[in-house]
Design a protein around this nucleic acid. Structure first.
Lengths: 236, 236
DNA sequence: CGGTGATTTGAGCATTCTCAAGGCTTGTGG
DNA sequence: CCACAAGCCTTGAGAATGCTCAAATCACCG
């Protein structure tokens, strides 16, 4: 399903403004931007999964945030033009690239657009805050369950979940880089979930959350409260 | 030193706009906002230290980000009005509270103001990304050295560092909540630094970084590159 | 000078990591 | 259609980092 139908307000507004916007595409594995690059622009993801990543000098990689279709992010701004992260394609992607200067003019249409962008920034910060919380204090099971639920909630909001099941294009290694575990321990944890009947793998690129209540229990979240925090509350 | 002189452009612009802005004050230990509260506003810190915090159900607290004088943060926005974090005073503070609606109008003065705000958001995201990176992969020494250097760089940018030394109003417990270590292990790590001559404590509320190069080595950062990423590059 | 809260140090324990090896799946070329 | 290669998943065993519990010391404040 094209995300345009879901996020039609934001995308529609952008296109209405006749901004010099063109859709770009990149293949899985490509790096759109590298840490330290100059980038005075924002990005709206239309299709696929993107990861903000950082590396320690020793080569350890960390995924800071995963962008899903419809998500918006500021990569850099005029007075802070250095990208703090790399931006890697976890799957094939389509996105809009938006120069900062185009979004900050006096134009009544932009007021509404900026409201939406502010909401997305707040949502992103909320997600990252949850990630930090879990990395600091939580067990491997907690973090893994949380990651599966976060993706579930966000994908559900854009109609990418069917029958508690969604497309999962990343490896256990990458999931580990996201939640802060070794690939080995991700595997153990997921296998444990599977054997307990919490999740299953209909095929190698999908995951199904069979017992969402149990996962919420392990992750320590109330699904409804959680969704309120990390999703943009769309204007009616 | 009043931060107004340093951040005069941002504060000055705010005051110039005759926005209905008034300075608020709160005492150390106070909670300005709680996780889940409605908050459709932003905040500009003038003096003192603030912490964004979150808690797991079991009671484990995590500091997500520390705000220092001059820092700006969006707490919530119209379409994402629920605060994802609590906001606690690590010291006595003075700050401006700014309703979102006031910052998003058609007004030439606001264009420049929004540029500054965008830069602060990017800087905050960069800091948080670094924090996530370190929580995921780094040792206790790395994380502790990093935290000390992050505060050093940020405080230096607002002239709050003298002779490699700065005011440090938080406990080891709180530092642990920030870097994701137990208070016991923070203590061990800091004592090790002290015995190795990397840091010292001129008095109980100050810390001095005696060997910054060694700390950078441990934290795995290049101070100049790092400053470029996490600081706002001020317009000339 | 007692009391409260913070820091310091020790000892044992637990979670997760690293290293290693085997199996499975997918794609490619003969 | 089969053989092989590459990448990913799975499982085991030992090692290490950081945690918890506990107790002693220290600093500040009324």
């Amino acid at each position: 399903m094209p995300v345009e139908s879901v996020y039609s307000d934001l995308v529609g507004r952008l296109l209405d403004l006749t901004l010099p916007v063109h859709i770009e595409t990149d293949a899985k594995g490509t790096s759109i931007i590298s840490e330290g690059d100059d980038a005075d622009k924002s990005l709206l993801l239309l299709e696929g999964w993107l990861a903000f990543t950082k590396m320690l000098p020793e080569g350890e990689t960390q995924i800071i945030d995963i962008m899903l279709p419809g998500d918006f992010a500021i990569l850099g701004s005029e007075y802070a033009p250095v990208s703090a992260c790399s931006l890697d394609c976890l799957s094939d992607v389509r996105y809009l690239s938006l120069p900062s200067s185009r979004l900050n003019r006096d134009d009544p249409n932009l007021i509404e657009l900026r409201k939406l962008m502010a909401a997305m920034i707040v949502a992103t910060q909320a997600r990252t805050a949850e990630l930090v919380l879990r990395k600091g204090n939580a067990s491997a099971a907690n973090r893994t369950a949380y990651a599966l639920l976060e993706l579930f909630v966000r994908l559900q909001a854009i109609n990418h979940v069917q029958d508690k099941q969604y497309h999962f294009p990343i490896t256990q290694q990458q999931l580990g880089e996201f939640v802060g575990l070794s690939n080995v321990h991700v595997c153990r944890t997921m296998r444990r979930f599977e054997r307990s009947g919490l999740i299953s793998h209909p095929d190698s690129t999908h995951v199904k959350l069979d017992d969402i209540d149990a996962l919420c229990e392990i992750a320590g979240i109330d699904l409804e409260v959680f969704a309120n925090e990390i999703l943009v509350r769309r204007p009616a």
